[in-house]
């Protein structure tokens, strides 16, 4: 989007400030197609999705919570928020990055192959990161790690030279600290 923006005289004069990473929390009616509406909005209007998680949070009321990590200038983030609010089955959109205190967590499962020194090194590092061993064979481990996306990135970088096989990550779930809801 930015490459085009630079070329076009119709490009918004707003698109000049720097890009920021924002985490949006979106409360939606859990009805068929609602995720497609949200994802379609991002692809249709050329917004970025860095990660997206979704699950039902209130079974009786059929409410789901979608957490989207996106990047853009403050003006683009503002547009994204308003465009999301236009989607009919959306109850509420909160830009968590505009709140004071946010907790972001991601869960990853990381499969590492290695024998001998590599194997024991992997285990030592996992202890330092408080990762849990959830599966083991003679020549492999699967670690479960919960933390900020940066912490998971760090751990994965350490596993790479040891014998990283594959990673499965959930994407970010986020919530504000304190007693108040979104």
């Amino acid at each position: 989007m930015n490459a085009i923006a630079a070329l076009s005289p119709y490009a918004s004069a707003l698109a000049k400030s720097g890009t920021e990473r924002h985490t949006l929390s979106v409360l939606v009616d859990n009805e068929p197609g609602v995720l497609a509406r949200v994802v379609g909005l991002f692809s249709g209007r050329g917004y970025n999705i860095e990660s997206l998680t979704v699950a039902e949070v209130a079974h009786g009321e059929h409410l789901s919570r979608i957490t989207i990590v996106t990047t853009g200038t403050p003006e683009v983030i503002d547009q994204i928020t308003h465009q999301l609010e236009r989607i009919v089955p959306i109850h509420k959109v909160t830009d968590l990055s505009m709140q004071d205190r946010v907790i972001e967590r991601e869960l990853a499962m990381i499969k590492v192959h290695g024998t001998g020194e590599h194997r024991s090194e992997a285990l030592r590092l996992s202890e330092a990161f408080h990762a849990k061993v959830i599966d083991a064979t003679i020549e492999s481990f699967i670690f479960e790690l919960t933390g900020s996306p940066a912490k998971i990135d760090d751990f994965v970088d350490l596993m790479r030279p040891i014998g990283l096989v594959e990673i499965s990550r959930t994407g970010v779930a986020a919530i504000t600290r304190g007693a108040k809801g979104m």
Binding site: Y10, S12, A13, L14, E75, D78, Q79, H82, E85, R86
Partner: peptide, 9 residues
């Protein structure tokens, strides 16, 4: 609200 600040400040 999405029409506001979409292209012009």
């Amino acid at each position: 609200p999405s029409s506001i600040n979409k292209t012009v400040k």
